[in-house]
């Protein structure tokens, strides 16, 4: 048994600057594309990093669940009528693959049949900020069980143990009464380079460890940190002659926690993928942290 992406969706709208709204709109479109009823979603995981008003509770997932109307009240007339369990998972740019791992465990144990993973990132002021380097964006992917061996194969994670973090996203104590609308992103000068190195190392380890034939990989989907990031990665894995890659960065800029779903969504929409095609997801970000997974369409 495995898990497969049943449908996906993205949301970018200059009029929409709320993480809850962007995630919920992507989630709604994803559900519409899936053919499932919303009551069938029994697990909802939000993996965004930058959120409205720097809310610490409730989970943003609960606010998205409410907005989407997913089993929002488990009890009616004294009876349990259907439940959804929702929570947030924070793991920066790699969140989607960690959420897929969590969903895998839950679905394999029969705790859930369908898991909706949503993500979004906005400036906490919920307004457009010209100097904010992240694109206000949301994405969603619906994961369901499959018996045919397709979908997510082994997911591996690789994060560093030394003190270097590369990038830090935080709200400083010194923001005082402005903290609700404040956010700081600090980047080391060599962050992109070192995150790229880690992504490459992790992908190489995966390709070797899981006996992946680079010739069979149809598409490379990454968390791009620049305009040529995915080309460099693809070249270093020896894939460029056989493998296409999606560059989300050129079109959308930095979609942070949503980048992998953006890449997958575009590949499907642009008909770059057909059944049995192999995709390699490679994510890297602050920490440093990375994740890699082969996916069979």
């Amino acid at each position: 048994m495995g898990i497969v992406i049943k449908s996906s969706a993205i949301c970018v709208d200059p009029e929409s600057n709320s993480a809850v709204e962007l995630a919920a709109r992507a989630g709604e479109e994803c559900m519409a594309n899936s053919g499932l009823r919303r009551e069938e979603v029994d697990l909802l995981i939000f993996t965004g990093v930058f959120r409205d008003d720097n809310i610490v509770e409730p989970a943003i997932a609960a606010l998205v669940q409410k907005r989407m109307g997913l089993n929002t009240d488990p009890v009616s007339d004294g009876n349990v009528i259907g439940t959804t369990f929702s929570f947030d998972l924070i793991k920066g740019r790699c969140g989607f693959l960690y959420a897929a791992k969590v969903a895998q465990g839950m679905i394999e144990n029969g705790r859930a049949a369908h898991a909706l993973i949503v993500s979004s990132d906005v400036h906490p002021s919920c307004k457009y900020h010209p100097e904010f380097p992240i694109t206000h964006s949301g994405a969603a992917a619906l994961l369901s069980r499959t018996e045919n061996g397709r979908g997510f194969q082994k997911i591996i994670f690789n994060s560093t143990t030394d003190s270097y973090t590369g990038e830090i996203v935080y709200v400083g104590e010194n923001e005082g009464t402005k903290a609700r609308k404040a956010i700081t992103i600090e980047r080391e000068k060599d962050y992109i380079l070192r995150a790229g190195d880690l992504a490459r190392k992790t992908a190489k380890k995966y390709v070797q460890g899981e006996s992946v034939n680079p010739r069979n990989v149809k598409l490379l989907i990454t968390t791009p940190h620049g305009k040529s990031w995915e080309k460099d990665l693809s070249r270093s894995l020896g894939m460029n002659h056989y493998t296409k890659s999606v560059n989300i960065y050129k079109k959308y800029g930095d979609t942070y926690s949503s980048a992998l779903i953006f890449g997958y969504f575009h590949a499907v929409r642009d008909e770059k993928l057909k059944e049995q095609d192999e995709v390699l997801f490679v994510a890297a970000g602050a920490g440093l942290s990375s994740a890699c997974c082969r996916y069979i369409v």
Partner: peptide, 11 residues
């Protein structure tokens, strides 16, 4: 953490 009221990333 230290002088950070909320640290989001790294986790």
């Amino acid at each position: 953490v230290d002088d950070k009221m909320l640290q989001y990333d790294p986790a």
